[in-house]
């Protein structure tokens, strides 16, 4: 009874209760469901799933699109995080507002907007034709490039913000110290600045990858049914096929893959970031 009076227990209780009831229990149910057959415990749903080449395509689609979205977000978000951290106060506020405000617009709304942008007569197509890169208008909607473009836009803030926050903490004198020791600007970036931003890169990558590996609405609206991912397949199994076994199996595989990739990438980054 004494433990109940411990403030830590009391403070954590609502969160524990909430997460147990609404997250841990359903997840447990999902896990149990995927491993149970008519004759008790079984691995059959998994052997069946991995036996079908179509499902391998689905896994490839899922990981591939998530990887591309993450790469695009990193390529744009890394320099943007620097620009944000090194900008003047007024500029910084303006940029932060520009990054954070779009988060208040729902994903569905944004995905619909991208449908219009990516059409054959959409802005992107017109722009590329005007630049002379494309000879004639083309449709990006319902292509993988269109999916990556739209998803990267939606998840970009989750890459920029963690990188921004670590860059802001780097003492500019470290780079100056490197310079007085004879290090060229590029050597300083590789050996000082970049390793110190790795924690931000790791959290940005973990955010964006785990969000884009499990995205459901965006692929549904930007690429459609011909491109199945683990999460759209999970959705279809529950909603249209009423196949709870398949749905829980794909959900568990998705979860395992996402965790594996995020853990592996942060481990890799920590190794790269530590001394050579």
């Amino acid at each position: 009874m004494k433990a109940l009076r411990d403030p830590v227990v009391l403070l954590a209780a609502p969160a524990v209760l909430y997460l147990t009831l609404l997250y841990a229990l359903p997840l447990g149910w999902l896990l149990a469901k995927s491993f149970s057959g008519p004759a008790g415990l079984t691995l059959q749903p998994y052997t069946e799933f991995f036996g079908d080449p179509f499902n391998w395509r689905v896994i490839g689609n899922t990981l591939g699109s998530a990887l591309w979205v993450t790469v695009v977000c990193l390529a744009i978000g890394y320099p943007a995080g620097f620009a944000l951290a090194r900008a003047g106060t007024a500029m910084q506020i303006a940029m932060l507002v520009a990054i954070i405000l779009p988060l208040s617009v729902g994903v569905v709304v944004k995905a619909f907007a991208w449908q219009i942008v990516l059409r054959r007569d959409g802005v992107v197509s017109q722009f590329l034709v005007a630049l002379g890169i494309w000879d004639e208008p083309q449709r990006l909607l319902f292509t993988e490039a269109g999916l990556v473009l739209g998803a990267a836009n939606i998840f970009l803030p989750f890459m920029i913000l963690p990188i921004y926050s670590v860059v802001k903490l780097i003492d500019p004198r470290l780079s100056e110290a490197g310079a007085t020791l004879g290090a060229t600007p590029s050597y300083r970036f590789v050996r000082i600045t970049f390793p110190l931003t790795l924690p931000g890169v790791v959290s940005g990558v973990a955010f964006v990858f785990s969000m884009s590996v499990s995205m459901y609405v965006i692929p549904s609206l930007l690429i459609g049914d011909r491109f199945q991912t683990l999460s759209t397949l999970t959705g279809r199994s529950f909603l249209f096929m009423r196949n709870e076994q398949l749905g829980s199996t794909t959900a568990v595989i998705l979860l395992a893959l996402a965790i594996a990739v995020v853990v592996a990438s942060s481990w890799l980054a920590r190794r790269l970031g530590s001394t050579e």
Partner: peptide, 17 residues
């Protein structure tokens, strides 16, 4: 980086990593 002038900074500016 091409001056050959070393500096000891006030906060030392050691590389934390």
């Amino acid at each position: 980086h091409r001056r050959d002038v070393g500096v000891v900074f006030q906060n030392y500016a050691l590389f934390p990593h």
